[in-house]
Nucleic acid binder design. Structure first.
Lengths: 218, 218, 218, 218
DNA sequence: AATGAATGAGAATTCATTCAT
DNA sequence: TATGAATGAATTCTCATTCAT
């Protein structure tokens, strides 16, 4: 299956694999995993059907390949750098914007893999263990630290992490379902999200009795 | 295709349709739309393959049927009743819990339809127009009203609505991807969500004392 | 299968059979035997699918039914009445016109049955024995008689009968294949046919002068 | 669908197509288009079911393929060469015998295609335009020329052409319907046909003596 | 007798995968 | 390695026929 120890050959192999995965991603996103045919993918990649099987064991293996490439990107982007309380809000905005800038252009990749992820237990488990669980852990730990420092309100970190991540995920799905606001205005979205989950919707004054507060954006 | 004007026959037809849709939902959820076969569905429903075609024009039509049944449930649940400022928070909690109580038990229905929704433009458009767009509109109007009454902070209603709905949707998807926290602790989730989006993560004291509100983005 | 000895019931049964055969003829002619469905035929006849099976054993039996009705018409029309030499030509014209007037309006019945006749050995055998063979025999005998009286040239009666009958059959098929001349001008056709097969294409003067008549095989 | 510009590959493709069409012709002729299954045809051709679809888009496309191969044979055979009056009769005999020698061995091909031709408007139209109409035109022109030279009696060329061609077609159909005379004695048939349509059935003496020639229509 | 829903065998077609070249 | 024709299992859908009402 096209392994090599010659470094030049290895490079060629990696390039060919990527070429095929690019094609597969596009075709899966456009037609869905099942309606996409190996012929489609081969044609898109500009190679013969059979050649795909030199680099991947099966059609399902293409999906794994896409998922694995995604992982690398994902994981690399997961540094929650420390942010002091003072600019925590700004950090959040920047962080969300950064995450979304990584995610949104890859939306179509999600369209390609999500359907199968939802329905294929093996793939799902793999993705959960390799991507979702670590992400949640990181987010939980971060919230925990912030909470301990008194930078954020007390809250169930496990659920808060899921709620926050879920919001991003949900917005992505909303976009994939055809929502144009989410698709077009994602740069503004970060700010709104922070207003929601950091400032809260409660009007600044209302808490007044409890605590004085004023407003985000207008 | 099994239409009738005799009311008794109509009842039988409706019952048979539901029987088939139930089976289809289960099988789609378990195997995904494409891996599910008509034979599977028929067997699950306890009828012959051909009988399905007396009630539905095609396999894809089954998906539409499921979607349409879902609509009815959805739409019926969409009343945002007024809530005064004083108990707005409680209203939110109750509302979210209600929505989730409707959604969570139907999670598997979403697993059945979401993959095709993501990948089938026709279905997607239909679902967007019939379910998502009206939901967003309602949410926007509600936020708008609340904002005008000063019950909530000023915020872009369109994006806020999407963020809120997206959070629910994202949590549902997270659950479908195998997250057990979201699946098991959904009753607590409502409270956490409200803490996040109504109270905000910002600690009660911080806003007033620590820094005079500068507004985000310029 | 709807037999009865009560004469009134028998009449009803015959009527219902004819109603169904009419419908079947139309639908077979329009769609061909195989593309025609029992549902089509039932709908055309204005009855329920199942009812057809009260009167006919199977779909193929409908074809037999059509063929049998056709036989009756055919056979009844087969009287070759004597015609003296003097008006033999006129007789031929009248006879051909008569045959065609019976056949042409039933062209669509032929479209319904001919395809199956060509391809179904059982049906074909039955039709040959019951319709074609007797027709040929009659024609042969007639030619024979005419020949013996010296009213027509000496010719192989068997082949001449086939050639004559084949001409009619061929013209019918030509019409069914879409030829509009044959369809529209069939009343003139009889005259032309007689000019061809009775007078011959040879110009009137040529035969006498050019060559003494040798007879066609014996 | 198996196109190639490499001439060797092209040869292989043409051979495979012919192999499949041969099988299809046999199976269609034996069972009729609808009762013939792709499995039958594949088995007869000695290949796998799916392979047929590498060369033909559908079962109906096989019929088109058969028809097109037929066209080539047909068209090639259509030369009406000039024949002087003296040997016009001989020419006719030779020509008819030639036509029949082309047609009769292909009778089973007609059994394969005629049923669908009769019942499938699209196919029928195509066949009429590509085969029947040109044939009729040629025959008409030929008759016209002969008439102008005084070699044949005055007659409506359009209908005469149809009658002549119809005679051949009808005899072919008669053979397909099981007539053995037509099948076995086709070499004698040519002579009889010419006796009929050139000499005419009218006994040699009768025309001159009994009545002055009235001409058929003008 | 009439109905028409239910049945399930059967057919066309698709497409992942193999393998000879 | 690359190719793409060949394979045949698997799937959707159709429809003649049955039978309970």
């Amino acid at each position: 299956m096209a392994e090599a120890h010659d470094p030049i050959a290895e490079l060629l192999i990696a390039a060919r694999r990527n070429q095929i995965l690019d094609a597969a991603t596009n075709v899966f996103a456009e037609k869905g995993f099942h309606r996409a045919t190996i012929k489609d993918i081969a044609k898109t990649a500009g190679i013969a059907d059979g050649t795909i099987y030199t680099y991947f064991a099966s059609k399902a293996d293409l999906l794994l390949g896409i998922l694995n490439r995604l992982n690398e990107t994902e994981v690399r982007g997961q540094q929650f750098t420390e942010g002091s309380e003072r600019d925590f809000r700004s950090f959040l905005v920047a962080y969300l914007r950064h995450r979304m800038s990584l995610l949104w252009p890859n939306a179509e990749v999600f369209r390609a893999v999500l359907p199968e992820l939802l329905v294929n237990p093996h793939l799902r488990e793999m993705y959960y263990q390799q991507v979702i669980a670590p992400t949640m852990l990181l987010a939980e730990q971060y919230f925990q630290t912030q909470m301990e420092h008194g930078y954020v309100r007390k809250v169930d970190v496990s659920l808060a992490a899921r709620a926050s991540a879920g919001m991003i995920l949900g917005l992505l799905v909303l976009q994939l379902l055809g929502d144009e606001q989410v698709a077009l205005r994602w740069e503004e979205l970060a700010e709104v999200l922070v207003t929601l989950i950091f400032d809260g919707l409660r009007p600044p004054s209302s808490e007044a009795s409890v605590e004085p507060q004023r407003n985000a954006r207008e």
